[in-house]
Design a protein around this nucleic acid. Structure first.
Length: 482
RNA sequence: GGCCCUAUCGUCUAGAGGCCUAGGACAUCACCCUCUCAAGGUGGAGGCACGGGUUCGAAUCCCGUUAGGGCUACCA
């Protein structure tokens, strides 16, 4: 039998990393089993769903490279089948009408909160009306969930209340709609978050009832409940409190492959190195090996992994990937809230191409690139006060160094290797160390104390501009020197 | 409150009774390399929540305690 799995998010907010992880594990399993990965948008709650969130889900999955074999389907499009299933179950006596309001239930329960609903209308034969909901008549006995990840979980049916399956408005609720769809879609494995464990016995009960009274008699899907992703306070990742939208990570300059690799490490681990390709992920992934304890989403580790992926890119790939940050006018998309550091017309692809290889080795996030190379595209890069103070004002040799540099760079060939040697030569004449000498030159050139290697930077900026900046700095240093 | 899940370095994890004086990765510290910054290299510190069993032997199995967490809607 073909493995068929589904990812079934509800479009009620940003697509967050917990959802992404569920989607990924489903996708990995499908790919590995040579099965079918299906996307179903669970949009039955009209009050909370928004169309724009559907787009976010689809875009985020595309970014992650989780290609869908079937769908995206809309759960709402199956409303007719949901209602038909409900009617059949009602006629078979599996469901009953209940006119209790939430307040009624609360009032009767008082301090005793177990179970949620007390079964008040269960045997009252309440006639159906516009104010009655339909509840599932939970049978006696025990329901066993066989979870691939957690083993056998037993639920006494007595603690499962007669849950509502269809609202008084007629709208069919999650547990019912979800099961009907899983049956229609012939889902074989349900892989989802741990927060659904308590829904599972209810869904198994519905499934069994449907198999019995409506047919066909389908085997229960195999369940696998993934450990939750938690925040620093060990609580379930929240869309409201935590910066967890997948789009946010894309906008920070994370690479999808790195992101996917990192996600795969949360609750699971490959045999050897943690850094693994998608292909290895697919072949190595084993659902039963997923562990059971919640995992904290550590952005620092993600960042480190991302750096490794960035460094592995070819220069061409790196340039293409950074276009949204360096040359927004030619990029296919733009990060949210992105503020360009230089006017678009001053960007020079040739210069960027020349500096890219040494920049690539120095960033962990693509968004770090602009600040590292702004001196190439700004006429007068801003001078960092602290850097100036330390390297120029605070160094009484700075003027001599700048003078020597200007004199040397006037004559020499502008080649990184040659500049290195020339600089080394006057450094020795001065009786200094290169480490010391590069500082004022760097600040004069870039305005910063850190950045790409100096000699490569000099070459890209070019002799005339280098001399102009060095002279300007020399002049300011001379007038402010004490 | 009830039901359910979980418990190895700060974090993510390896570990399925002896291979564990518990391994790796990130973070951290030191040193090396070095034109800054990164990257890289070497080394260090750092953990089986606790208590009982079972066993010749337990991080691994069982029970309990404790601590976290999830669910407890006419949401999904």
């Amino acid at each position: 039998m073909t493995t068929r799995v589904r990812f079934a998010p509800s479009p009620t907010g940003l697509f967050h990393v917990g959802s992404a992880r569920s989607a990924l594990f489903n996708w990995l399993f499908a790919r590995q089993q040579d099965g079918v990965f299906l996307l179903r948008i669970e949009d039955t709650d009209a009050d909370r769903n928004r169309e724009e969130w559907v787009d976010v889900i689809i875009n985020s999955m595309a970014w992650l490279g989780l290609d869908v074999d079937e769908g995206p389907f809309r759960q709402s499009a199956n409303a007719v089948q949901h209602k038909a299933a409900v009617e059949s179950l009602y006629e078979a006596g599996v469901l009953y009408a209940c006119g209790c309001t939430g307040d009624d239930v609360q009032a009767r329960k008082g301090e005793n909160k177990t179970p949620g609903y007390d079964g008040h209308c269960r045997d009252l034969n309440v006639p159906r009306s516009a104010t009655t909901a339909l509840r599932f008549k939970v049978p006696e006995g025990m329901t066993v969930v066989d979870d691939v990840i957690r083993g056998r979980i037993e639920f006494q049916n007595a603690v499962i209340d007669d849950f509502v399956v269809a609202k008084s408005s007629g709208a069919v609720l999650y547990n019912m709609a979800n099961v009907v769809d899983d049956r229609v879609d012939r889902i074989t494995h349900v892989i989802r978050g741990e927060d659904h464990i308590s829904n599972t016995p209810k869904q198994q009960l519905i499934w069994a009832a449907l198999s019995r009274v409506v047919g066909p008699d389908l085997p229960l899907p195999i369940y696998a409940h993934l450990p939750l992703l938690v925040d620093a306070s060990r609580k379930k990742l929240s869309k409201r409190k935590d910066p967890v939208a997948v789009e946010f990570f894309r906008d920070q300059g994370f690479l999808p492959d790195a992101f996917v690799n990192f996600l795969s490490l949360l609750g699971w681990s490959p045999k050897g190195e943690e850094k693994v390709t998608r292909e290895e992920l697919i072949s190595q992934f084993t659902l039963g090996e997923v562990n059971q304890s919640p995992a904290f989403f550590d952005v620092v580790k993600l960042t480190n992994l991302n750096g490794a992926y960035v460094r592995e890119l070819s220069v061409e790939e790196f340039i293409a990937a950074t276009l949204p940050w360096v040359d927004p006018s030619t990029a296919l998309w733009s990060p949210a809230d992105f503020q360009p550091l230089w006017p678009a017309e001053r960007f020079d692809p040739g210069r960027y191409r020349a500096i890219a290889p040494v920049v690539q080795e120095r960033v962990a996030l693509l968004s770090e690139v602009p600040a590292m190379i702004d001196f190439l595209f700004l006429e007068n890069p801003p001078i960092d006060a602290a850097a100036w103070t330390k390297a120029v004002t605070g160094d009484r040799d700075a003027i001599a160094i700048l003078d020597a540099a200007i004199a040397a760079y006037k004559e020499t060939e502008f080649d990184a290797q040659v500049l290195h040697e020339v600089t080394l030569a006057f450094t020795e004449q001065l009786g200094m160390k290169l480490r010391k000498v590069q500082a004022p030159i760097r600040v004069a050139l870039t305005g910063k104390s850190v950045g790409p290697p100096l000699f490569e930077s000099l070459v890209v900026v070019g002799r005339d501009e280098v001399l102009r900046r060095l002279s300007a700095a020399r002049e300011v240093a001379g007038t402010t020197a004490t």
